[in-house]
Nucleic acid binder design. Sequence first.
DNA 1: GATTAACACA
Length: 553
Amino acid sequence: MLESETQRFAFRNAIARLIETCKNTTELKQIHAQIIASPKLAKRDHEFLISRLLYFSAISIPRFLSYAISVFQRIQSPDLGIYNIMIRAYATKRERDCDTLSCPALKLFKQMLSNGIAPDSLTIPFLVKECTRRFDVGSGRCLHGLGIKSGHCGDIFVQNSLTSFYSTCGWVDSARNLFDEMCDRDVVSWNSMITGYLKGGNLDEALRLFRSMKNKNAISWNSIITGFVHGCRTKDAFDLFREMLCLSEDDNNMVKPDKITIATVLSACAHVGAFDQGKWVHSFLTRTGMECDMVIGTALVDMYGKCGYLRQALDVFEEMPEKDTLAWTAMISVLALHGHCKKAFEAFEKMEAEGVKPNHITFVGLLSACAHSGSVERGRQCFELMTKAYLIEPQVHHYACMVDILSRAGLLQEAEKLVRGMPLKPDVFVWGALLGGCQIHGDVKLGERAAKCLIDLEPLNHAFYVNLCDIYAKAGRFEDVKRVRALMKEKEIRKEVAGCSLIEVDGTVHEFSVTGSAEIVTKQIAWILNALNGEIKLKDDMNWVQYYILEIQ
DNA sequence: GATTAACACA
Protein backbone atom coordinates (compact mmCIF):
# COMPACT_ATOMS: atom_id res chain seq x y z
CA MET A 1 0.00 0.00 0.00
CA LEU A 2 2.73 2.36 1.05
CA GLU A 3 4.77 1.41 -1.98
CA SER A 4 1.95 2.11 -4.38
CA GLU A 5 1.37 5.42 -2.63
CA THR A 6 5.02 6.33 -3.21
CA GLN A 7 4.80 5.23 -6.84
CA ARG A 8 1.69 7.30 -7.39
CA PHE A 9 3.39 10.29 -5.87
CA ALA A 10 6.44 9.84 -8.08
CA PHE A 11 4.24 9.47 -11.14
CA ARG A 12 2.33 12.64 -10.23
CA ASN A 13 5.53 14.62 -9.78
CA ALA A 14 6.94 13.31 -13.05
CA ILE A 15 3.89 14.63 -14.89
CA ALA A 16 4.15 17.94 -13.02
CA ARG A 17 7.76 18.29 -14.23
CA LEU A 18 6.74 17.32 -17.75
CA ILE A 19 4.23 20.18 -17.82
CA GLU A 20 7.06 22.67 -17.30
CA THR A 21 8.84 21.44 -20.44
CA CYS A 22 5.94 21.97 -22.84
CA LYS A 23 6.85 24.04 -25.86
CA ASN A 24 3.45 24.35 -27.48
CA THR A 25 -0.23 23.73 -26.86
CA THR A 26 -0.16 20.35 -28.64
CA GLU A 27 2.24 19.05 -26.01
CA LEU A 28 0.08 20.59 -23.28
CA LYS A 29 -2.97 18.84 -24.72
CA GLN A 30 -1.19 15.47 -24.75
CA ILE A 31 -0.31 15.80 -21.07
CA HIS A 32 -3.76 17.06 -20.26
CA ALA A 33 -5.25 13.94 -21.92
CA GLN A 34 -2.88 11.74 -19.96
CA ILE A 35 -3.94 13.38 -16.69
CA ILE A 36 -7.60 12.83 -17.49
CA ALA A 37 -7.19 9.25 -18.70
CA SER A 38 -4.64 7.89 -16.24
CA PRO A 39 -6.13 5.33 -13.83
CA LYS A 40 -3.07 5.63 -11.59
CA LEU A 41 -4.01 9.06 -10.31
CA ALA A 42 -6.28 9.77 -7.37
CA LYS A 43 -8.79 12.64 -7.40
CA ARG A 44 -6.53 14.96 -5.43
CA ASP A 45 -3.57 14.24 -7.75
CA HIS A 46 -5.81 15.05 -10.63
CA GLU A 47 -6.76 18.38 -9.05
CA PHE A 48 -3.14 19.13 -8.24
CA LEU A 49 -1.99 18.48 -11.79
CA ILE A 50 -4.79 20.47 -13.38
CA SER A 51 -3.85 23.43 -11.22
CA ARG A 52 -0.16 22.98 -12.22
CA LEU A 53 -1.22 22.86 -15.84
CA LEU A 54 -3.31 25.94 -15.35
CA TYR A 55 -0.52 27.78 -13.57
CA PHE A 56 2.00 26.94 -16.26
CA SER A 57 -0.26 27.88 -19.18
CA ALA A 58 -1.74 30.99 -17.57
CA ILE A 59 1.23 32.49 -15.74
CA SER A 60 4.57 31.02 -16.82
CA ILE A 61 3.99 31.23 -20.56
CA PRO A 62 1.55 34.07 -21.20
CA ARG A 63 0.94 33.06 -24.81
CA PHE A 64 -0.73 29.86 -23.61
CA LEU A 65 -3.43 31.87 -21.84
CA SER A 66 -6.17 30.95 -24.29
CA TYR A 67 -5.43 27.29 -23.56
CA ALA A 68 -5.57 28.02 -19.84
CA ILE A 69 -8.95 29.65 -20.31
CA SER A 70 -10.31 26.54 -22.04
CA VAL A 71 -8.94 24.36 -19.24
CA PHE A 72 -10.46 26.67 -16.63
CA GLN A 73 -13.87 26.59 -18.31
CA ARG A 74 -13.96 22.81 -17.98
CA ILE A 75 -13.35 22.84 -14.23
CA GLN A 76 -16.72 22.25 -12.61
CA SER A 77 -16.30 23.97 -9.28
CA PRO A 78 -13.05 25.93 -9.22
CA ASP A 79 -11.66 26.65 -5.76
CA LEU A 80 -10.02 29.83 -4.50
CA GLY A 81 -6.55 28.75 -5.70
CA ILE A 82 -7.79 28.20 -9.22
CA TYR A 83 -9.57 31.56 -9.25
CA ASN A 84 -6.41 33.25 -7.95
CA ILE A 85 -4.37 31.81 -10.82
CA MET A 86 -6.86 32.99 -13.43
CA ILE A 87 -7.37 36.43 -11.87
CA ARG A 88 -3.61 36.89 -11.68
CA ALA A 89 -3.21 35.77 -15.29
CA TYR A 90 -5.74 38.34 -16.51
CA ALA A 91 -4.29 41.05 -14.29
CA THR A 92 -0.71 40.63 -15.51
CA LYS A 93 -1.66 40.45 -19.16
CA ARG A 94 -0.40 43.25 -21.40
CA GLU A 95 -2.87 45.91 -22.41
CA ARG A 96 -2.69 45.27 -26.14
CA ASP A 97 -3.79 41.63 -25.81
CA CYS A 98 -6.51 42.57 -23.42
CA ASP A 99 -10.10 43.40 -23.86
CA THR A 100 -9.90 47.08 -23.04
CA LEU A 101 -13.55 47.74 -22.36
CA SER A 102 -14.54 44.98 -20.01
CA CYS A 103 -12.22 43.86 -17.30
CA PRO A 104 -11.98 40.06 -17.32
CA ALA A 105 -10.16 39.93 -13.97
CA LEU A 106 -12.93 41.81 -12.19
CA LYS A 107 -15.60 39.83 -14.03
CA LEU A 108 -14.07 36.60 -12.87
CA PHE A 109 -13.83 37.97 -9.36
CA LYS A 110 -17.57 38.78 -9.36
CA GLN A 111 -18.25 35.25 -10.61
CA MET A 112 -16.12 33.89 -7.78
CA LEU A 113 -18.01 35.93 -5.18
CA SER A 114 -21.37 34.80 -6.55
CA ASN A 115 -20.19 31.21 -6.22
CA GLY A 116 -19.75 31.85 -2.52
CA ILE A 117 -15.96 31.91 -2.52
CA ALA A 118 -14.39 34.64 -0.38
CA PRO A 119 -11.14 36.31 -1.51
CA ASP A 120 -7.92 35.94 0.44
CA SER A 121 -4.92 38.21 0.86
CA LEU A 122 -3.60 37.10 -2.54
CA THR A 123 -6.75 37.75 -4.56
CA ILE A 124 -6.92 41.40 -3.53
CA PRO A 125 -3.40 42.46 -4.62
CA PHE A 126 -3.91 40.84 -8.05
CA LEU A 127 -7.12 42.78 -8.56
CA VAL A 128 -5.75 46.03 -7.17
CA LYS A 129 -2.85 45.76 -9.59
CA GLU A 130 -5.29 45.41 -12.45
CA CYS A 131 -7.14 48.56 -11.27
CA THR A 132 -3.79 50.38 -11.04
CA ARG A 133 -2.95 49.46 -14.60
CA ARG A 134 -6.33 50.67 -15.79
CA PHE A 135 -6.39 53.78 -13.57
CA ASP A 136 -9.73 52.45 -12.38
CA VAL A 137 -10.08 54.47 -9.19
CA GLY A 138 -13.69 53.41 -8.58
CA SER A 139 -13.04 49.67 -8.57
CA GLY A 140 -9.80 50.09 -6.65
CA ARG A 141 -11.56 51.94 -3.86
CA CYS A 142 -14.30 49.28 -3.77
CA LEU A 143 -11.59 46.66 -3.34
CA HIS A 144 -10.10 48.71 -0.52
CA GLY A 145 -13.51 48.70 1.18
CA LEU A 146 -13.91 45.00 0.58
CA GLY A 147 -10.45 44.40 2.00
CA ILE A 148 -11.41 46.23 5.19
CA LYS A 149 -14.68 44.33 5.49
CA SER A 150 -13.11 40.95 4.91
CA GLY A 151 -10.29 41.70 7.35
CA HIS A 152 -7.44 41.55 4.84
CA CYS A 153 -6.25 45.12 5.18
CA GLY A 154 -3.75 44.20 7.85
CA ASP A 155 -1.86 42.17 5.29
CA ILE A 156 1.26 43.91 4.04
CA PHE A 157 0.78 42.77 0.44
CA VAL A 158 -2.75 44.15 0.41
CA GLN A 159 -1.55 47.40 1.96
CA ASN A 160 1.34 47.72 -0.46
CA SER A 161 -0.78 47.06 -3.51
CA LEU A 162 -3.25 49.71 -2.34
CA THR A 163 -0.48 52.23 -1.60
CA SER A 164 0.86 51.70 -5.08
CA PHE A 165 -2.65 51.97 -6.53
CA TYR A 166 -3.40 55.32 -4.86
CA SER A 167 0.11 56.58 -5.68
CA THR A 168 -0.14 55.73 -9.37
CA CYS A 169 -3.68 57.05 -9.76
CA GLY A 170 -2.75 60.43 -8.31
CA TRP A 171 -4.39 59.97 -4.91
CA VAL A 172 -1.15 60.62 -3.04
CA ASP A 173 -2.85 61.75 0.17
CA SER A 174 -4.83 58.52 0.39
CA ALA A 175 -1.63 56.60 -0.25
CA ARG A 176 0.09 58.53 2.52
CA ASN A 177 -2.77 57.90 4.99
CA LEU A 178 -2.50 54.21 4.31
CA PHE A 179 1.29 54.32 4.54
CA ASP A 180 1.19 56.17 7.86
CA GLU A 181 -1.33 53.73 9.31
CA MET A 182 0.73 50.65 8.48
CA CYS A 183 2.23 48.84 11.48
CA ASP A 184 5.05 47.30 9.46
CA ARG A 185 6.49 48.82 6.34
CA ASP A 186 8.86 47.03 4.05
CA VAL A 187 10.95 48.30 1.15
CA VAL A 188 7.99 47.92 -1.22
CA SER A 189 5.80 50.16 0.96
CA TRP A 190 8.46 52.88 0.93
CA ASN A 191 9.12 52.54 -2.79
CA SER A 192 5.40 52.72 -3.61
CA MET A 193 5.00 55.86 -1.51
CA ILE A 194 8.08 57.52 -3.01
CA THR A 195 6.81 56.71 -6.51
CA GLY A 196 3.53 58.40 -5.62
CA TYR A 197 5.27 61.68 -4.77
CA LEU A 198 7.48 61.42 -7.85
CA LYS A 199 4.54 60.86 -10.17
CA GLY A 200 2.66 63.70 -8.55
CA GLY A 201 5.61 66.04 -9.15
CA ASN A 202 6.45 66.48 -5.47
CA LEU A 203 10.10 65.59 -5.95
CA ASP A 204 11.31 67.14 -2.72
CA GLU A 205 8.95 65.16 -0.53
CA ALA A 206 9.97 62.03 -2.48
CA LEU A 207 13.63 62.80 -1.80
CA ARG A 208 12.94 63.51 1.86
CA LEU A 209 11.25 60.13 2.23
CA PHE A 210 14.04 58.47 0.25
CA ARG A 211 16.66 59.97 2.55
CA SER A 212 14.85 58.75 5.64
CA MET A 213 14.67 55.21 4.28
CA LYS A 214 16.92 52.73 6.02
CA ASN A 215 17.15 49.79 3.64
CA LYS A 216 17.11 51.01 0.09
CA ASN A 217 17.28 48.54 -2.74
CA ALA A 218 18.05 49.01 -6.45
CA ILE A 219 14.39 49.75 -7.14
CA SER A 220 14.42 52.62 -4.60
CA TRP A 221 17.41 54.13 -6.40
CA ASN A 222 15.99 53.50 -9.85
CA SER A 223 12.67 55.07 -8.86
CA ILE A 224 14.20 58.24 -7.47
CA ILE A 225 16.60 58.64 -10.41
CA THR A 226 13.81 58.09 -12.94
CA GLY A 227 11.52 60.47 -11.07
CA PHE A 228 14.12 63.23 -11.16
CA VAL A 229 14.80 62.64 -14.86
CA HIS A 230 11.09 62.87 -15.68
CA GLY A 231 10.76 65.91 -13.46
CA CYS A 232 13.49 67.64 -15.53
CA ARG A 233 15.92 67.77 -12.60
CA THR A 234 18.59 66.03 -14.61
CA LYS A 235 21.53 67.33 -12.65
CA ASP A 236 20.07 65.98 -9.40
CA ALA A 237 19.38 62.69 -11.17
CA PHE A 238 23.02 62.43 -12.27
CA ASP A 239 24.20 63.29 -8.75
CA LEU A 240 22.00 60.53 -7.35
CA PHE A 241 23.39 58.09 -9.91
CA ARG A 242 26.93 59.00 -8.89
CA GLU A 243 26.02 58.54 -5.25
CA MET A 244 24.60 55.12 -6.06
CA LEU A 245 27.82 54.19 -7.87
CA CYS A 246 29.97 55.28 -4.93
CA LEU A 247 27.91 53.22 -2.52
CA SER A 248 28.09 50.20 -4.80
CA GLU A 249 31.87 50.24 -4.64
CA ASP A 250 31.55 49.28 -1.00
CA ASP A 251 31.52 45.48 -0.99
CA ASN A 252 29.16 45.34 1.94
CA ASN A 253 26.56 47.21 -0.01
CA MET A 254 24.47 44.87 -2.09
CA VAL A 255 22.80 47.61 -4.09
CA LYS A 256 24.36 47.95 -7.50
CA PRO A 257 23.17 49.76 -10.61
CA ASP A 258 21.30 47.36 -12.85
CA LYS A 259 20.02 47.43 -16.42
CA ILE A 260 17.12 49.66 -15.50
CA THR A 261 19.41 52.20 -13.83
CA ILE A 262 21.59 52.22 -16.94
CA ALA A 263 18.65 52.56 -19.32
CA THR A 264 17.25 55.47 -17.30
CA VAL A 265 20.56 57.29 -17.04
CA LEU A 266 21.26 56.83 -20.76
CA SER A 267 17.88 58.24 -21.67
CA ALA A 268 18.58 61.20 -19.40
CA CYS A 269 21.91 61.73 -21.22
CA ALA A 270 20.07 61.59 -24.53
CA HIS A 271 17.53 64.10 -23.30
CA VAL A 272 20.04 66.74 -22.26
CA GLY A 273 22.82 65.87 -24.70
CA ALA A 274 25.28 64.80 -22.02
CA PHE A 275 27.64 62.97 -24.34
CA ASP A 276 30.63 62.49 -22.01
CA GLN A 277 28.37 61.14 -19.31
CA GLY A 278 26.67 58.82 -21.81
CA LYS A 279 29.99 57.60 -23.15
CA TRP A 280 31.15 56.97 -19.60
CA VAL A 281 28.05 54.85 -18.93
CA HIS A 282 28.83 52.89 -22.11
CA SER A 283 32.38 52.20 -20.93
CA PHE A 284 31.02 51.30 -17.49
CA LEU A 285 28.90 48.64 -19.20
CA THR A 286 31.92 47.19 -20.98
CA ARG A 287 34.10 47.40 -17.88
CA THR A 288 31.65 45.70 -15.56
CA GLY A 289 30.71 43.11 -18.17
CA MET A 290 27.05 44.02 -17.91
CA GLU A 291 25.16 42.46 -20.77
CA CYS A 292 24.11 44.97 -23.40
CA ASP A 293 20.59 43.75 -23.98
CA MET A 294 18.01 45.17 -26.36
CA VAL A 295 16.76 47.79 -23.93
CA ILE A 296 20.25 49.12 -23.21
CA GLY A 297 21.26 48.84 -26.87
CA THR A 298 18.23 50.93 -27.81
CA ALA A 299 19.04 53.46 -25.11
CA LEU A 300 22.64 53.71 -26.41
CA VAL A 301 21.49 54.24 -30.00
CA ASP A 302 19.14 56.94 -28.77
CA MET A 303 21.83 58.57 -26.59
CA TYR A 304 24.56 58.68 -29.26
CA GLY A 305 22.06 59.79 -31.89
CA LYS A 306 20.58 62.61 -29.84
CA CYS A 307 24.03 63.78 -28.72
CA GLY A 308 24.94 64.18 -32.38
CA TYR A 309 27.10 61.08 -32.86
CA LEU A 310 25.44 59.20 -35.70
CA ARG A 311 28.45 56.95 -36.39
CA GLN A 312 28.51 55.61 -32.82
CA ALA A 313 24.74 55.11 -32.86
CA LEU A 314 25.06 53.06 -36.04
CA ASP A 315 27.95 51.04 -34.58
CA VAL A 316 25.97 50.10 -31.49
CA PHE A 317 22.94 49.30 -33.60
CA GLU A 318 24.86 47.06 -35.97
CA GLU A 319 26.36 45.15 -33.08
CA MET A 320 23.01 44.40 -31.52
CA PRO A 321 22.35 40.66 -32.01
CA GLU A 322 18.62 41.11 -31.84
CA LYS A 323 16.58 44.13 -32.82
CA ASP A 324 12.96 44.61 -31.94
CA THR A 325 10.49 47.28 -32.99
CA LEU A 326 11.80 49.73 -30.42
CA ALA A 327 15.43 49.29 -31.48
CA TRP A 328 14.63 49.81 -35.16
CA THR A 329 12.41 52.77 -34.29
CA ALA A 330 15.21 54.39 -32.27
CA MET A 331 17.62 53.96 -35.21
CA ILE A 332 15.13 55.31 -37.75
CA SER A 333 14.35 58.31 -35.52
CA VAL A 334 18.06 59.04 -35.11
CA LEU A 335 18.60 58.93 -38.88
CA ALA A 336 15.63 61.26 -39.27
CA LEU A 337 17.03 63.63 -36.67
CA HIS A 338 20.31 63.81 -38.59
CA GLY A 339 18.44 64.61 -41.80
CA HIS A 340 19.14 61.28 -43.51
CA CYS A 341 15.73 60.69 -44.99
CA LYS A 342 16.89 58.15 -47.55
CA LYS A 343 18.82 56.12 -44.99
CA ALA A 344 15.86 56.18 -42.61
CA PHE A 345 13.72 54.60 -45.32
CA GLU A 346 16.44 52.08 -46.17
CA ALA A 347 16.52 51.06 -42.52
CA PHE A 348 12.76 50.77 -42.59
CA GLU A 349 12.94 48.43 -45.61
CA LYS A 350 15.49 46.30 -43.83
CA MET A 351 13.29 46.20 -40.77
CA GLU A 352 10.36 45.01 -42.88
CA ALA A 353 12.59 42.44 -44.60
CA GLU A 354 13.63 41.05 -41.22
CA GLY A 355 9.99 40.65 -40.29
CA VAL A 356 9.95 43.24 -37.50
CA LYS A 357 6.64 45.05 -37.43
CA PRO A 358 6.70 48.85 -37.25
CA ASN A 359 4.47 50.61 -34.74
CA HIS A 360 2.94 54.07 -34.70
CA ILE A 361 6.17 55.61 -33.37
CA THR A 362 8.22 54.11 -36.22
CA PHE A 363 6.02 56.10 -38.57
CA VAL A 364 6.51 59.26 -36.53
CA GLY A 365 10.24 58.76 -37.19
CA LEU A 366 9.74 58.23 -40.91
CA LEU A 367 7.37 61.16 -41.30
CA SER A 368 9.70 63.45 -39.39
CA ALA A 369 12.51 62.32 -41.74
CA CYS A 370 10.32 63.53 -44.62
CA ALA A 371 9.63 66.81 -42.83
CA HIS A 372 13.32 67.46 -42.20
CA SER A 373 14.27 66.76 -45.78
CA GLY A 374 11.31 68.37 -47.51
CA SER A 375 10.13 65.10 -49.08
CA VAL A 376 6.47 65.81 -49.66
CA GLU A 377 5.66 62.88 -51.95
CA ARG A 378 7.48 60.40 -49.79
CA GLY A 379 5.60 61.71 -46.76
CA ARG A 380 2.27 61.19 -48.49
CA GLN A 381 3.22 57.65 -49.51
CA CYS A 382 4.40 56.91 -46.00
CA PHE A 383 1.10 58.07 -44.49
CA GLU A 384 -0.76 55.83 -46.98
CA LEU A 385 1.46 52.86 -46.17
CA MET A 386 0.84 53.29 -42.47
CA THR A 387 -2.92 53.48 -42.75
CA LYS A 388 -3.59 51.15 -45.69
CA ALA A 389 -0.90 48.47 -45.42
CA TYR A 390 -0.17 48.42 -41.70
CA LEU A 391 -3.67 49.44 -40.65
CA ILE A 392 -2.28 51.81 -38.05
CA GLU A 393 -4.83 54.39 -37.06
CA PRO A 394 -3.11 57.77 -37.49
CA GLN A 395 -2.74 59.61 -34.21
CA VAL A 396 -2.50 63.34 -33.61
CA HIS A 397 1.30 63.39 -33.91
CA HIS A 398 1.13 61.70 -37.33
CA TYR A 399 -1.14 64.50 -38.48
CA ALA A 400 1.25 67.00 -36.90
CA CYS A 401 4.09 65.52 -38.99
CA MET A 402 2.01 65.62 -42.20
CA VAL A 403 0.99 69.23 -41.54
CA ASP A 404 4.65 70.00 -40.87
CA ILE A 405 5.70 68.40 -44.18
CA LEU A 406 3.07 70.27 -46.19
CA SER A 407 3.49 73.64 -44.52
CA ARG A 408 7.28 73.63 -44.67
CA ALA A 409 6.95 72.95 -48.40
CA GLY A 410 4.64 75.95 -48.71
CA LEU A 411 1.52 73.87 -49.41
CA LEU A 412 -0.32 75.85 -46.78
CA GLN A 413 -3.83 75.51 -48.17
CA GLU A 414 -3.53 71.75 -48.35
CA ALA A 415 -2.11 71.74 -44.82
CA GLU A 416 -5.04 73.75 -43.49
CA LYS A 417 -7.47 71.45 -45.31
CA LEU A 418 -5.85 68.47 -43.61
CA VAL A 419 -6.13 70.13 -40.20
CA ARG A 420 -9.80 71.02 -40.70
CA GLY A 421 -10.66 67.58 -42.04
CA MET A 422 -8.77 65.37 -39.56
CA PRO A 423 -10.93 63.04 -37.49
CA LEU A 424 -9.12 63.94 -34.27
CA LYS A 425 -9.08 67.22 -32.41
CA PRO A 426 -5.96 69.06 -33.63
CA ASP A 427 -3.60 69.76 -30.75
CA VAL A 428 -0.94 72.44 -30.28
CA PHE A 429 1.61 70.47 -32.32
CA VAL A 430 -0.71 70.31 -35.33
CA TRP A 431 -1.61 74.02 -35.24
CA GLY A 432 1.97 74.82 -34.28
CA ALA A 433 3.27 73.10 -37.43
CA LEU A 434 0.86 75.16 -39.51
CA LEU A 435 1.86 78.38 -37.75
CA GLY A 436 5.52 77.48 -38.34
CA GLY A 437 4.80 77.13 -42.07
CA CYS A 438 3.07 80.50 -42.11
CA GLN A 439 6.12 82.01 -40.46
CA ILE A 440 8.45 80.57 -43.11
CA HIS A 441 6.26 81.50 -46.06
CA GLY A 442 4.87 84.77 -44.71
CA ASP A 443 1.18 83.92 -44.80
CA VAL A 444 -0.31 86.47 -42.43
CA LYS A 445 -4.00 85.54 -42.76
CA LEU A 446 -3.59 81.83 -42.18
CA GLY A 447 -1.02 82.57 -39.48
CA GLU A 448 -3.61 84.65 -37.65
CA ARG A 449 -6.14 81.83 -37.84
CA ALA A 450 -3.65 79.24 -36.62
CA ALA A 451 -2.43 81.51 -33.82
CA LYS A 452 -6.02 82.09 -32.69
CA CYS A 453 -6.63 78.34 -32.41
CA LEU A 454 -3.35 77.90 -30.53
CA ILE A 455 -4.17 80.71 -28.11
CA ASP A 456 -7.62 79.17 -27.53
CA LEU A 457 -5.91 75.90 -26.65
CA GLU A 458 -3.19 77.37 -24.47
CA PRO A 459 -3.98 80.99 -23.68
CA LEU A 460 -0.93 81.47 -21.49
CA ASN A 461 1.72 80.03 -23.79
CA HIS A 462 3.92 82.92 -24.82
CA ALA A 463 5.38 81.13 -27.86
CA PHE A 464 2.29 81.56 -30.03
CA TYR A 465 2.12 85.32 -29.44
CA VAL A 466 5.82 85.60 -30.23
CA ASN A 467 5.41 83.61 -33.47
CA LEU A 468 2.50 85.80 -34.51
CA CYS A 469 4.56 88.91 -33.81
CA ASP A 470 7.29 87.49 -35.98
CA ILE A 471 4.87 86.97 -38.87
CA TYR A 472 3.60 90.55 -38.53
CA ALA A 473 7.15 91.90 -38.32
CA LYS A 474 8.16 90.00 -41.45
CA ALA A 475 5.22 91.57 -43.30
CA GLY A 476 6.21 95.01 -42.01
CA ARG A 477 3.03 95.29 -39.92
CA PHE A 478 4.63 96.82 -36.86
CA GLU A 479 1.36 98.28 -35.54
CA ASP A 480 0.07 94.72 -35.21
CA VAL A 481 3.30 93.70 -33.48
CA LYS A 482 2.70 96.45 -30.93
CA ARG A 483 -0.93 95.36 -30.51
CA VAL A 484 0.04 91.75 -29.75
CA ARG A 485 2.82 92.88 -27.39
CA ALA A 486 0.30 95.06 -25.54
CA LEU A 487 -2.09 92.14 -25.33
CA MET A 488 0.66 89.97 -23.85
CA LYS A 489 1.40 92.64 -21.28
CA GLU A 490 -2.28 93.01 -20.44
CA LYS A 491 -2.71 89.27 -19.97
CA GLU A 492 0.59 89.13 -18.09
CA ILE A 493 1.99 86.50 -20.39
CA ARG A 494 5.59 85.71 -19.76
CA LYS A 495 7.80 82.81 -20.43
CA GLU A 496 6.52 80.36 -17.80
CA VAL A 497 9.55 78.15 -17.47
CA ALA A 498 12.83 79.93 -17.42
CA GLY A 499 15.23 78.93 -20.13
CA CYS A 500 17.76 76.52 -18.80
CA SER A 501 20.83 75.03 -20.37
CA LEU A 502 23.09 72.23 -19.45
CA ILE A 503 26.73 72.14 -20.34
CA GLU A 504 29.11 69.32 -19.79
CA VAL A 505 32.74 69.87 -18.86
CA ASP A 506 35.00 66.99 -17.92
CA GLY A 507 32.03 64.73 -17.53
CA THR A 508 30.18 66.92 -15.07
CA VAL A 509 26.91 68.45 -16.13
CA HIS A 510 26.42 72.06 -15.11
CA GLU A 511 23.05 73.65 -15.19
CA PHE A 512 22.49 77.36 -15.51
CA SER A 513 19.38 79.37 -16.08
CA VAL A 514 18.37 83.00 -16.50
CA THR A 515 16.43 82.96 -13.24
CA GLY A 516 19.50 82.69 -11.08
CA SER A 517 20.80 85.85 -9.46
CA ALA A 518 22.84 88.05 -11.79
CA GLU A 519 25.94 87.29 -9.82
CA ILE A 520 25.54 83.53 -10.09
CA VAL A 521 24.76 83.70 -13.80
CA THR A 522 27.81 85.84 -14.36
CA LYS A 523 30.00 83.52 -12.36
CA GLN A 524 28.69 80.50 -14.17
CA ILE A 525 29.12 81.99 -17.59
CA ALA A 526 32.59 83.27 -16.79
CA TRP A 527 33.44 79.80 -15.54
CA ILE A 528 32.10 78.17 -18.69
CA LEU A 529 33.88 80.60 -20.95
CA ASN A 530 37.02 79.86 -19.08
CA ALA A 531 36.48 76.19 -19.70
CA LEU A 532 35.90 76.86 -23.38
CA ASN A 533 38.94 79.02 -23.65
CA GLY A 534 41.65 77.32 -25.59
CA GLU A 535 39.19 74.90 -27.17
CA ILE A 536 37.94 77.51 -29.56
CA LYS A 537 40.01 79.44 -32.01
CA LEU A 538 38.50 82.85 -32.15
CA LYS A 539 37.99 84.57 -35.42
CA ASP A 540 38.91 88.25 -35.46
CA ASP A 541 35.55 89.45 -36.67
CA MET A 542 33.41 86.99 -34.66
CA ASN A 543 34.84 87.36 -31.25
CA TRP A 544 31.66 86.29 -29.50
CA VAL A 545 33.37 85.23 -26.31
CA GLN A 546 34.66 88.78 -25.92
CA TYR A 547 31.19 90.02 -26.66
CA TYR A 548 29.66 87.90 -23.92
CA ILE A 549 32.29 88.90 -21.43
CA LEU A 550 31.44 92.55 -22.16
CA GLU A 551 27.73 91.80 -21.84
CA ILE A 552 27.98 90.21 -18.44
CA GLN A 553 30.26 92.73 -16.89
C1' DG B 1 -0.45 26.50 -6.01
C1' DA B 2 1.37 32.23 -4.96
C1' DT B 3 1.64 38.09 -3.61
C1' DT B 4 3.29 44.35 -3.82
C1' DA B 5 7.61 48.63 -6.12
C1' DA B 6 11.55 50.75 -10.98
C1' DC B 7 13.23 51.10 -17.30
C1' DA B 8 13.86 51.98 -23.32
C1' DC B 9 11.49 54.26 -29.18
C1' DA B 10 7.55 59.94 -30.39
